[in-house]
Write a protein that binds this DNA or RNA. Structure first.
Lengths: 343, 343
DNA sequence: GTGAAAGCGCTAACAG
DNA sequence: CTGTTAGCGCTTTCAC
């Protein structure tokens, strides 16, 4: 057991200044590369920083600047296992990429259950982060209220349930679902079921609404047995599809409300000897893995995930930048891109 | 657009003190519930805190205490899609649960690619967190070095590739794999293949080693074609199993090195009309979902995930508590629990 | 039990 | 361009 002595004292600005033969202020200017520094001073400071392996103390800096250069992605897991969703990984990647050339760091905060949600809210209120992106909202989620109580800028992924004035980014889920369903109708299908998303999430409800709207417009309103609620997971998609097949013998097509669920649903359909993919339409983020499971590809209404993550970051940085003044009004940044992969 | 004025000033200790009619020091004592405070003072302070909705400024506090009450779980995603792994979600849950009754908060830091890894390392060095748990290590991962360069306590999930003196928690992967493979041998199987984990991860290598050891002990060393490398994902498991089935016509059993891969492998085996689950043994965290895919259940060597997450936290808190003195020596906390779900 | 005072390490006017 | 001077909000001796 190697016993290191008490941790070696971290060098401070003061010491760098001493070594470089300048004042603390000058070192600070160099660190924050202010233009008003002579090349000589700059070099001397850089050398000293190098020699001392100096790293600025964020707490001290944040105390005065009131910025932490950190934004949090808060995952409110109520029921659904969000980590499992491939679209979640893509969101994280998108946000990281968008932030790569920024000073901002991204941290993920997982809040499962009331206690953790409160812990996360406290974390945010205490000033650990400059802003929050909240995703995967369920109807009874406490976090929006808990977070709204703090002065930290907040952005939602997905329209809030109530019409509260919070900036958010959403896709045209109603339109997307309608387009996907209409496509099946146009193909001559008449008994079209749906594997819906969770109905305690706006995105789930919206996609169901779009599906219903398409059927209604075609004069063939959806009956309840045509709707099987899924949970956005592959396993959930399988279960819902199985249910649908059992309850509706004459089912001749299905609209699936997300990519992972489509994978599960397709498996069930194939096992049942159904025509695939002609009978299936999907709305989602057009996951490559999903596309690969099927040849020819499914008919997919793809949503621009990158635009959405980009929008979330933009909206948030805008609020942070404005120091919390202005920008507090609600904003919409919905988009939808319809693409037919086949048929 | 509602234009809120410049953000309302956050109340400070000073103001709470004024309202409560005591000094800053007393308020501080109450906040950190020090015993040396009179009940009256305590009540007065609590009332003032309530009235002002006072929340301590973490940066100011951390500046003096040198603690942030935050520990980071760093996800170094090189190749594998770690988010997709169900065991990842369980790790996060385990850590959160372990930390629930603690002052410590948990943040996840995703580092994909060199730039992000460096950004994460910088984040850590700057003092945003009190300690780091690093998981999902690949052989060429830069993070261990980058992080070791900072004075922040570090704990690894899984033995490091080189024997560097870093505290870590590991399971007995060699033993587990050997047990699973031996079980198949005992059943009279002779052409036993393996769907291995990624061979650039210690856990993947260890499980392969255990498999080989069991075969060697039985006098039937593994030939190369019996090993199909997977990536711990379901899809990877399917691919590897398909490869195996194609290359080894007389294969009569298989040891699968993780739960998700087992799901994929089983699917392929079933489709090929193989006996299932008699021909399969798995080592992993005994995921309930996996267990559910098979009836009767697979033979599984289950590892105690909760013990491992608990160990990670304990090791880390110990180092943090000791202020970085002592505790720097390497420590092992490996465990393994063998259980036969059937047969 | 409580207050006064001295910083933690850094940035940000403000003079020079 | 650079140094001096104040703090940021909180904890923590050290007297009382």
């Amino acid at each position: 057991m190697t016993t290191t002595g008490p941790r070696p004292p971290t060098p401070t600005l003061e010491q760098v200044a001493a070594l470089a033969g300048v004042s603390r202020a000058t070192v600070s200017r160099v660190i924050n590369d202010s233009p008003r520094v002579s090349p000589e001073a700059r070099d001397a400071v850089h050398a000293a920083v190098e020699a001392l392996r100096y790293v600025p103390n964020r707490m001290a800096r944040s105390l005065v600047t009131r910025r932490t250069d950190t934004i949090a992605l808060v995952l409110s897991e109520s029921n659904t296992q969000i980590f499992a969703d491939p679209f979640f990984a893509r969101i994280v990647r998108g946000l990281s990429a968008r932030l790569a050339d920024t000073e901002q760091n991204l941290v993920l905060l997982a809040a499962r259950g009331r206690r953790e949600q409160e812990k996360v809210a406290r974390y945010v209120r205490q000033g650990h982060v400059d802003g929050v992106i909240l995703i995967s909202l369920h109807r009874d989620d406490l976090l929006p209220d808990l977070l709204a109580r703090s002065p930290v800028p907040l952005v939602l992924s997905g329209r809030p349930f109530d019409g509260r004035p919070v900036p958010y980014v959403d896709a045209d889920n109603v339109g997307g679902a309608r387009a996907a369903t209409s496509h099946l109708l146009r193909l001559g299908r008449s008994r079209i079921g749906t594997v819906s998303g969770p109905l305690d999430m706006v995105v789930g409800l919206d996609r169901l609404t779009g599906y219903r709207a398409a059927l209604a417009a075609a004069g063939a309103p959806a009956s309840p047995e045509l709707v099987a609620e899924g949970d956005f997971t592959e396993a959930g998609g399988s279960r819902a599809m199985t249910r649908l097949l059992g309850d509706v013998p004459d089912l001749d097509a299905v609209f699936v409300a997300s990519d992972p669920m489509a994978v599960g649903a397709l498996r069930v359909l194939r096992a049942a000897g159904r025509r695939v993919p002609e009978d299936v339409a999907v709305v989602g983020f057009d996951d490559a893995e999903v596309a690969a499971t099927c040849d020819p590809p499914l008919t997919t209404v793809a949503q621009p995930l990158d635009e959405m993550t980009g929008g979330l970051v933009d909206l948030l940085l805008e609020q942070i930048g404005s120091g919390g003044s202005a920008a507090a009004g609600s904003r919409v940044c919905g988009t939808a891109l319809v693409r037919r992969a086949s048929a």
